[in-house]
């Protein structure tokens, strides 16, 4: 276990360094979500929003950032596999999960920074207590990240060629976000619905944020169920993890 943790620590440090290698790209990665949030909610800039309004207006956007970044990080592992790098790493590390966990930890740190930026700017613009908002956003991320990862891991168990990885990840992210928006329009969704929180990570993130504001006991059952199913899906997907590239012999 000590060796596993050490390997995770070394690769997490290295992947963080890769992320910070280009400062301009790093600032762009942090700044773009804040900019897009401003564009998305420009009608409400400077107005005082209630927590309920904030949940409906800003949280779907936060959900999109979290889902898109997490899918992209897993897509990066799939691309490594398709380039033949994963099988070389595989013979070095105690378990291929070392690489996945390291990548996901770097992604989590990146997401914490992004949503902190979104929280700071949106708290100030929408006249919400910034400290409380940041804590709610961080807790939302921590609560929803593990189920999201579990539900996204099947990507690594599919045989997907290098050229198709980006397309598939983008389609999955779009289906989740547009599908969730369509469902929201067509139905009245309860925040503690197990099925809808399982089907759409966008609902899970939005509902987690809402529940943290004082309704967690009503949400705990649905959350526990989603977490359990996501962990089972994640474990099954990990057992089917593809190490070899899809193409070529």
């Amino acid at each position: 276990m000590r060796k596993y943790l050490m390997q995770v620590a070394i690769y997490t440090q290295y992947f963080s360094r890769v992320l910070l290698d280009s400062w301009s790209l790093f600032i762009y990665t942090l700044g773009l979500p804040v900019f897009l949030m401003l564009v998305n909610d420009r009608k409400y800039l400077g107005q005082s929003l209630t927590w309920w309004q904030y949940t409906n207006l800003v949280l779907p956007f936060v959900a999109w950032v979290v889902i898109a970044n997490t899918l992209e990080m897993l897509a990066d592992v799939a691309r490594m596999r398709e380039q033949g790098y994963l099988k070389q790493y595989y013979s070095l590390v105690v378990s291929p999960s070392v690489l996945i966990v390291s990548k996901l930890l770097v992604n989590l740190m990146m997401l914490l920074l992004i949503i902190s930026g979104v929280g700071l700017v949106s708290g100030w613009l929408f006249h919400l207590p910034v400290g409380a908002l940041l804590v709610r956003l961080w807790l939302t991320l921590l609560l929803s990240y593990l189920p999201l990862v579990g539900l996204s891991l099947p990507i690594l168990s599919w045989s997907v060629r290098y050229q198709s990885v980006n397309a598939i990840v983008n389609v999955v992210a779009l289906v989740i976000m547009l599908g969730s928006a369509a469902v929201m329009t067509a139905f009245t969704i309860s925040f503690n619905s197990f099925i809808w929180n399982l089907v759409s990570p966008a609902f899970l993130i939005t509902d987690s944020f809402y529940a943290i504001g004082g309704h967690f006991s009503a949400f705990a059952g649905a959350y526990g169920g989603v977490l359990l199913v996501a962990l089972v899906i994640g474990m099954i997907s990990y057992r089917q993890l593809k190490i070899l590239p899809t193409e070529g012999i």
Binding site: D21, G84, Y85, K87, Q88, Y89
Partner: peptide, 18 residues
């Protein structure tokens, strides 16, 4: 077993010690 098929991508800015 150890499998070496190609060199892994590395940041150009890291040192050999890294």
């Amino acid at each position: 077993a150890l499998y070496l098929n190609q060199h892994l991508p590395m940041l150009m800015g890291v040192r050999i010690s890294d």
